[in-house]
Design a protein around this nucleic acid. Sequence first.
RNA 1: GGGCGUGUAGCUCAGUUGGUUAGAGCGCUUGCUUGACAUGCAAGAGGUCACAGAUUCGAGUUCUGUCACGCCCACCA
Length: 1091
Amino acid sequence: MKDLPSQYDHAAAQEKWYPFWESRGYFHTEADDPRPPFTIVIPPPNVTGALHLGHALNNTLQDILVRMKRMQGFNTLWMPGTDHAGIATQAVVERRLLEEEKKTRHDLGREGLVKRIWQWKDQYEARILSQLKQLGCSCDWARTQFTFNEHNSRAVREWFFRLFADGKIYRGKRLVNWDTFLQTAVSDDEVFHEAVKGHFWHFKYPVIDPKPGEPTHVTIATTRPETMLGDTAVAVHPDPATEIERIIAAFERDLESAPDKDKAAIAAGRDAHLEWRTWKLPELLKIRDMAIDGRMLEVPLTGKFDPTTGKIIPGTNRRIPIILDDWAKVGIGSGCVKITPAHDENDYAVWQRHPEIGAINIMNPDGALNESVPEGYRGLKMHTKARDAVVADMEAADLLVRVEDRVIDLPHSDRSKTPIEPYLTDQWFMKMDELAQTAMDAVTSGRVKITPERYAKGYLDWLSEKRDWPIGRQLWWGHRIPVWFIHFRNPDATLERLESVLNPLLAHYGCNRDEISVTYDVKDLRRGIVKVCTKSESAESAFRKLKDLQECTQEEWRHSEVIGNLQLEQLCLKLRSSIRLIQQEDDVLDTWFSSALWPHSTLGWPDETPELKRFYPTSVLITSRDIITLWVARMVLAGLYNVGDVPFHEVYITPKILDGYGETMSKSKGNGVDPLDVIEKFGADALRFGLAYLTTDTQDVKLPVEFECPHCGAQFPQTKKNRQLARIECEKCGKPFSTQWAEKPDDKALARGAVVSERFELGRNFANKLWNAARFALMNLEGYTPGAVADKDLLLEDRWLLSRLATVTQQVTDSLERYRYADAARTLYDFAWNEFCSFYVEMTKARFAVPEQRQTAQQVLAHALDVLMRLLHPMMPFLTEEVWQLLAQVAPERGLAGPGSGTTRLAAAVESVCIAAWPEADVGRQDVTIEEQFADFQAVLGAVREIRQRQNIPPREEVTFTVRCDARTAELLRPMQPYFTQMARATSTAWGPGAAAPGIAASVTHAGRHGAMEVHVDLSRFIDVAAERKRLEKERDNLNKQIGGIESKLANKNFVDRAPAELVQQQRDKLADLRGQLSSVATALAKLANR
RNA sequence: GGGCGUGUAGCUCAGUUGGUUAGAGCGCUUGCUUGACAUGCAAGAGGUCACAGAUUCGAGUUCUGUCACGCCCACCA
């Protein structure tokens, strides 16, 4: 034991104990285990990249809970796994493909790309799982899941099929956020807005055959001029005259009620509108009348292109109506607004109100203009070349009125970081009305409880909109939507043929009627199309077979298997004659569609597995707040729909870790922290403890980060400037290095520097403190013999420690059960450091020197260390295991029962702290009196130390002191003499009411349990009069201030009458006590004055 | 524009139902190579609890308003 290093070696402990736990199967659990279950499913990390600090936090919090519950005797299952993260993963692989091989996905083809992504997934999944293990996560690895593995694919197909058969899935034209780089729709949640510098162009559209007195042109303005090629109308407000009056009146009202400082701005707004009324309204009214009259406008640049001149043939431009719609705002610009239904959200809404204007899609999926525009523009990218061309041509045609600079909040795709184009496409949707309601009910009824509660509001607000969920993605990486389109040649006979031709063939190829679901809408049916959803892989392969038979050439047909089977051949001929096309859906499902099933699919659904019965609903979900809607809400509705029960009873939302500037950490910003860097530098225990310590009531937490130079080890703060660099130069030694998080290190050979945070020093230091306390205990447990400890042998400090230990056990358990991680961490930190180490361990030093006290001290120390390790284990698993194992070598049997029994509760320690029982609070040991008595001891000790320090008494010098206090306190303190010697090099010469102050002394007065305690340190050899006087005067002033405060309080009749009597009395006692202290101080001061 | 949250020591944060002199870690000052630990020990300095009102005997804590900051949602031809 003696050769234990004086510093805790976290790397060695991590290397040793994780494999130990895993090999013993502590993390594995079975469904037939009779103990009550406790289940958590991991929020599956995306396989896009390595884990970051946010994951470390989230998973640490889960592990803390899981480890505590395991110790509490639950059958504990923590289900691990990863998410295929459709768009994100495909995007990252495609980006790499382009960078490293200059290839696009089309060069590889669907199969080729998907194969690449699987390779990526294997690589990162392995890395992620390894990171979790290094963090110490006690997941049941044998059950590791992946959202896109075979089983989960089956679950996804099953859910889709049920929804499809239930009529909750439909396909419709919708304006979507189109990512022209990835060529897919992205959801609103995957779009971020970024302010960019842009322009506001004012164009003139000619009026066709203007009558005398009518304007010849209508002016419109746009930030996206290229969209004019898809304009199908210009809108004006139906009643601009009334509307402008209403607006002006509103300004007047605001002006009256607004505070003075805002008045100028409001007046300016009103004046602008007054001016508009004067100058713009008359013309707008004319245009309004023209709209009523059904007059048309010409959209420039949309006519027939003449290749010989390179110009538009005059008179061929598209003609569009002027329509009345209050989307057109009054008081701004000309009051007219162009309408491009296929490329703008609001214009799309206008089209819904005016279906007759139609919509023209002018864009290809790649963001270039399509054949709906004149030849000269085709193939130009919308927001770059097409825009320039349109603006140039409008200017050349003298139809550009003016251009303004303007900052535009441009939507960007979160995945590709390119601008979004609104785009009209066919998309798959899930009807949300009823499903959303069930998810809302689950929370309002309390079946699912969200902590902290405030997050329930966002959840409910979002769901209450009940917006249908666009579930399709135009990607290759993901669950392919299991739908086939069957195009019949004769629309009239569609349904009949479906049953008479398709069904027997499907059956022949191994697909039964109940494995498919058929749907069609009126529009489809008119064109002879039905959609068929396949439930199983066998149904899927039957369709592939049918598709082959339908498409095959004469030659292939002659060699096909159907030849020779007369009945089959007949059917297939019918198939070929009645069906024009069999088409498989290309889209894949939104990632969240499969994530929504996570809690039940990972437990075996759709099969009725023992796991599903045993572990579902899970106990709690721990996740971050930005996916409450995307993920949590959808899991709730999916669970209710598929299994009929909520997926979890509680949801705990974690804090968010921000950098020193309060910004979210991200790879692209370069401010992320790799948990492995922290683990390497400070240890997993330090990281975990530090994270738990930060987890207050979902406060966001700022974590300033530093770079660590790989050459000289110097640390310097990360700034907004240096974190953007791919190559960072050390501020100390000047040598360059890169960081893992830099997006593109320009030099791969560059040494990698870590990004760390000094905030984790707290945990590292704490771990080391605990390690050394344990080391001390182990050294002094030599000769430990398990045996009974009689209550009477317990000294004051033993009773104090056991009382505190009981309280701490209660507090930690309670805090963790309520997700108050920081409270639990702080409680343990304070207790272990300031009570266990600073007092108890210190005091045992004296006792180990006294043979008859040695054994009791050893037993209490071993017991306390045992309990402390168990309490700390969820937060610091490696350190506690290391200590646990060492302790087992010297004290294999230990334990202490509640009071009164007079015996120890000796028990052989179990083989790992992982599976040790969670401590139960010995409430019988809790004793307020003992704790107060101990506080008196601490106060006297503190007073002596304070005087020594203040008087600059050399540490080696012995001092003597007296304590004037009541007799009872004196009785308690007298036996503590050895501790004063050891902890303050001080010897008491008198205790009690009669103890007099030495002639020359420095004094401190302290409010004790039974009146004031005066501590006098004999200073005849050391006195520093000036210092002491200064101190006493300060003390006197402080006392006077307090006395004044209480006196005025007590003089207040209201206080005396209305405050609780108890409190008033308390104040009176306090006042008396303070006055006593004041007089002692005065006496001491007077004495000094005489010197 | 709507919602949620946050302003407490130089920095990062605690402060549970209103009730002694508002706490911790880091940093800072002073003194210590104390036989567990310098990743440590002892002592100390440092705060008008964003601001203004209200309720109350009493407000960091409750209410109203103001200012600043952050996040989410919606919108911006």
